[in-house]
Amino acid sequence: MNDEPLVRWDWIARNWDNGGPSAIKTLLESHVVMALLPVVFGLLIALPLGVACARWRWLYQPTAGLMNVVYSLPSLVLFSIFLSVTGLTQSTVIIPLTFFTLAVLIPAVVDGLGSVPEHVRQSAVAMGFRPLRRLLQVELPVAVPVVLGGLRVATVSSISLVSVGALIGQGGLGNLFIDGWQRQFYTPIVVGIVLIVLLAVLSDGLLVLAQRLLTPWSRARRRTA
């Protein structure tokens, strides 16, 4: 629509760290905080809840139903509703994203614990493991691949969803989209998209690495197979 180039490198250089609140670096930092805190909170809440749902199956149906409903709500809707409760703070983004994380992670924890083979559980019992130690030292480690699979989905979604928060004034890198739109200026939009995708790819890679470190046996088994 105009002759504006897609990327103006000098704009990026000038605004990377311009000292103001709209510096790309500052936005990147707040983006990381708003995207990753929900994942951390979500994991801390989902682990005990998931264990409880796996232990008492009657809990799972209502919890899963509720999470399904939460997951179907658009992020903009939850942000708008929380805006009236928590105002123009980072919590307005962090709390709804924590719910989305829970919606992904609770089923992952339950499925993960369900993936523990019965003979493994019985061996642990036969070796004298009490329920708590069996959970912490046998069942949860075996569940790691499934839980981490959920964690990867939650992390990547969270990183991209934060940007919608820009519409309510708290969007980290999403603010670049608003800026670019208002000034009909491509560069900030492209920078925002690229940084968000890079952040997502990097986090996903770190989680894959974490899975390799946490489940050394899966590699050993593949080597012997």
Partner: peptide
């Protein structure tokens, strides 16, 4: 993977500005 990582708002704004 791309669908999960791509920010909706950014994609919208960019495509609408371009077209």
């Amino acid at each position: 993977n791309a669908a999960r990582a791509l920010p909706t708002l950014g994609l919208l704004v960019l495509v609408v500005l371009l077209i």
